[in-house]
Design a binder for these strands. Structure first.
Length: 134
DNA sequence: GCCTTGACGGCAA
DNA sequence: GTTGCCGCCAAGG
């Protein structure tokens, strides 16, 4: 295993986005920037959304749980209609502060280090720091 | 090989 | 406090 391959063990930028997205717990959402940041590309939030533009069908990526930094359903129209995404999130118990804006401070889930021991130690679920705004 | 677009984010005026 | 502009990274035409 060459050092080059060792460093390039990351399959693809897109694959990494899907991997993180698949780790989003039920009833929880994350942001493009959070995913990008967990990948080591804090300024690549744009590419994260671009990757979710065409996710592999066999991965079943819950892209509806990914919103922008304000919790707005940026890609709502990419599901055919924002109402489709809202219905999915709403069905998971995700609180909305507006018709197409989720209450991030209640459901904001951070990818942390998906794929790392840290995530496994937490159980990749129920880390839920969350806020207690009421 | 070049330029433009794109499901975002942060900073400045 | 709000609105607008620029910057990043990658893929498509």
């Amino acid at each position: 295993m060459t050092d080059d391959a060792a460093q390039d063990d990351q399959p693809d930028f897109y694959s990494r986005v899907y991997e993180v997205a698949l780790h989003i717990p039920y009833g929880r959402v994350t942001t493009y920037g959070a995913i990008a940041r967990s990948m080591g590309h804090p300024n690549s939030a744009r590419v994260v959304g671009y990757a979710l533009n065409a996710p592999p069908p066999f991965l079943d990526v819950p892209c509806h749980r990914v919103v922008n930094r304000i919790g707005f359903l940026s890609g709502g129209w990419h599901f055919g209609h924002p109402d489709v995404m809202r219905d999915k999130l709403r069905a998971e118990g995700v609180p909305f502060v507006d018709d197409y804006q989720v209450d991030l401070k209640r459901v904001m889930w951070e990818p942390w280090a998906v794929g790392s021991a840290a995530a496994d130690e937490v159980g990749d679920l129920e880390q839920i720091p969350l806020f207690e705004d009421g």
